[in-house]
Design a protein around this nucleic acid. Sequence first.
DNA 1: AACTTAGTACTACAGACGGAGTGGTGTCAA
DNA 2: TTGACACCACTCCGTCTGTAGTACTAAGTT
Lengths: 188, 188
Amino acid sequence: MRTNPERRQALIDAAIEVLAREGARGLTFRAVDTQAKVPTGTASNYFSSRDDLLTQAGGRIYERLTPSDGTLASVHEGARDAARLKELMHEVVGRVSAFPTGFLALLELRLEATRRPELRAVLTQRIKADVDFNVSNHRESGLPGDDTSVKLLMLAFNWLILERLTLPDLYDEEEVHRIVEEAVDRVI
Amino acid sequence: MRTNPERRQALIDAAIEVLAREGARGLTFRAVDTQAKVPTGTASNYFSSRDDLLTQAGGRIYERLTPSDGTLASVHEGARDAARLKELMHEVVGRVSAFPTGFLALLELRLEATRRPELRAVLTQRIKADVDFNVSNHRESGLPGDDTSVKLLMLAFNWLILERLTLPDLYDEEEVHRIVEEAVDRVI
DNA sequence: AACTTAGTACTACAGACGGAGTGGTGTCAA
DNA sequence: TTGACACCACTCCGTCTGTAGTACTAAGTT
């Protein structure tokens, strides 16, 4: 078992790309090697099994989807009204959409979690933490809306992003914009 | 190319089960044969390619997810208020959740559509029709809420069902119930 | 400076698996 | 008798895993 941390990370990031592109079944050691442009057999040396690789990828995606400190700080800037909340929501939807492979890979993992209890546990914990994070973040921001607002917005926007990424012709740019605005208005 | 229609349909239904259980990559002629309990090679004789099978399955799922005439008629019964709408929404969420393989298979297909333009076109069209169907259905029902309400509820509930089916421990029964109620209240 | 050694990168190969496709045989009904 | 289909068996092919073995590099030792 090799330990070089940069290489390990590069392999996990490659695994995320493969997940998004080829699906969970397509995630093989060989495919990861190719994606990461390392010699055949390398991934084999770094991960004990496919399960291992899968769960580590599950953890890593969340690291990469987490907003930077900069965007996090900006939440506390500006007015404390619905208009500001809308701005922030547009930013979130944009940011997640901008890392499509991450979102798609996460979906693949969710589907795979149907079959793998261990992965399911990891994801459940991660996502629960993410919900709590968003709720408490919103609370202390002083922006309008309560805990339920946050949850409802998360539900709606997640599916909205899913629509955009899998069937881009379903909703156009303006429609998405409009939906985000309406959602915020109605939910708070 | 064989033509026996019952057999063909049985094979497509088997393909949906395989899709949900094994993912899009796991959808092979052999797997479908096994699922449908027909001899090896049968699916091969009925479909010209995997693509063919995939797109036909995409069409079929929607036939099966469409509500029965009975439930459709019941929309027009009872009061025209938020309470009745909530009831109906609980019914929808319940009905879709009750056919998990269909929902999961559809997700697999959406992800596969990322890679297959032809499948993407089929799904886009189907889902657009579904949205329109729900919107117009709601309009003539006289229930509270406008077109945007319907779209927002569809977005939120779709992701809610996704959560329930892929990570059942995330939201418990009561939480789901509460979210449905709150969503209706706020969105109309 | 030469030598040793540990950790890692890389290569190559063996074994196994599973899927596709197809040809052939059996069966039944028109 | 003939045609359509069900069923079965067999071969070819691609790909995956696991690992053994070699080459490299850098740090420590004398």
